[in-house]
Design a protein around this nucleic acid. Sequence first.
DNA 1: ATCCTCCCCTAC
DNA 2: TAAGGTAGGGGAGGAT
Length: 632
Amino acid sequence: MSILGVQWPSASDSRRYSDCQTKRPPHYAADPSDLHAQRARANPQWRSAHTSAAPGFIKGYFDHSRLHFLSSVKLKAELVREAQARAEVKQEQQKAFAPKIAPESPVKGKGRARDERVIMHCDFDCFFVAAGLLSRPDFRGKPVVVCHSQGNQGGTSSTSEIASASYEARVAGIKNGMSLQQARKLCPTALTMPYEFDRYKDLSLNFYTILMFYADELEAVSIDEALIEVTAAVSRLRSDAARAGSPHDPAKDFAQKIRAEVKEATGCEISVGISHNILLARLATRRAKPAGAVHITPADVPGLIATLEITDLWGFAGSHREKAREKLGSTALSELTLYNAIRGIDDALLQSDQLRKSVSAEINYGIRFQSNEEAEAFIREMGITVAERLDEAKMRGRSITLKIMEREPSAPVEAPKFMGHGHCDAFQKQTPLVGPGGRATSDPQVIGEHAWRIVASFHFDPKELRGIGIQITNLEPADRPVSINSNQQRSSFKPSEVAPQAPALHALPKICPFLSSTRSWSKNGAVAPPRSRSASVFPERKSAPSMRMQQSGLLRHGAYVNSLHRNRPANALSRPTDADLGLAPEVYALLPSAIQREQLTAARLIKNLGAIPINKPKTFLLHDSNIQASAC
DNA sequence: ATCCTCCCCTAC
DNA sequence: TAAGGTAGGGGAGGAT
Ligand SMILES: Nc1ccn([C@H]2C[C@H](O)[C@@H](COP(=O)(O)OP(=O)(O)OP(=O)(O)O)O2)c(=O)n1
Ligand SMILES: [Mg+2]
């Protein structure tokens, strides 16, 4: 089916999405949630009031989702901007009375040797819990968790997820992300506290204001976490200390001063990791927690790294651990070539505005439809939601991707986690998003229409849907009809094919209008697209994903970040480049030449090591001289 | 070469 | 009852 050059999708393939994999913590007990919950779900009245079919479900969901909260705070950057404004006011005030106290203009990071930098990684201790304790001092010193379920709600079988656990609770083995029932097994006396999203923002603003006051540069990581470069401030302290013959570490003293200020302003503890690069500063924070400061110096590096696992490095998790185990026979950093990953991180600055590459909205919780009509209404409302987010970001898009989760056929109809998605097959399909005149768009009607058509093309049984996501990509600024990616094609069709104006939606031929109950595939997530309808227009896939080559797994996720530099526009960005893995020359010699030319990422390294004709991983151990050379 | 599509992965 | 979002890096493989 082709409309104005747009190819509407046919069904595609799926991937498994399991409750039982490392993807999400396996915290949901195999037995279903308790009888109360079961009865509630079975009750049509309850369903129509509390699932995706309910009016207002989407707003209510996003209002209560802590993961959405975390993402939206990070995205907006308004906190950081406000903090910068406040910090500048304070600096002006101090300059007027005591010019020497206010920090001087920072020395540009580029002009400084890497090992001269002082990087601090500042992170609240059990942030949500610490915030909650401000109004529950009687809970201090006890095992406390923040989750939706409160008190004895849900009894011992609550599937409510724990956002944050106090250090007393962690002693019992409770971890962030665990279900409450799991936590109660580990610690029956654990106390619960509710979310207080507004308070988290207030505390964060105070935190960022203090950091901004001292920082030469600041990178916002999340609502409770930031990286600052404080080289200028510390070097002043250092020369003072040298004059006074003080034995103290000025960087650590400075960190303690920042900790005290944040404690004073927020009533909460932060921990500070200090080092000459980001990777090491993050490692230092882990050793500093809770309520401490740790400085890792170049001299500490060899001894420290020798004790670590690959997953202790930021950005490395389960997939890398398994890859290392398979390919190298070890997960110990000291046994891996990654040993040498401990190097400086580039501080190159980008002048561009925040470069949003995608805008999306998804819900994979409480998705339960009885009919196609319910599903369609929901998807169109999600379309409106994404459209609003596009407008907020002042962006328009040219591509739309639908992400759909469907109950895996062998999975129970109701998931172990209350109203959760359970074990699912996941489907994804991307098509051009064609706005009026073939232009990029943020029009909710257009987005909704595309979204619904994509979903309809799959012919799902609406009762089996468990998750819906809409993502818009190929973005361009709403006020400037120029693509961000200058090389990319405007769209999938030529200007001559573009209708002079937007086709009226009602005039579009209705295709795939129903989520029919028939689907002509089933096995193993591999899909045979229905022969009917659009198969002739939409090319059939040659192979199912399950037949594809296994992915290698990835690497470093250094994203474009919110970064504020004093004396630069608030929206200026800096991009920490990938950590330079800094292989020893003899290791480079073993790698395929194509790899050598590019920046070597850990994923490539781990992947390619398997193909290198060597006997043992030991070959890749580095000499002390290399470590010294690269660690600084 | 450089894209597009579909996937995986990580972090908070 | 509970609220499993979101963006970006990056790889594989096909199209152009
Ligand atoms: N799986 C998770 C992880 C974190 N968070 C939220 C709650 C945390 O309080 C906040 C900050 O995350 P951290 O990783 O910094 O964890 P904490 O601050 O709770 O503990 P700590 O930093 O002391 O380890 O993000 C969440 O909702 N779900
Ligand atoms: Mg924290």
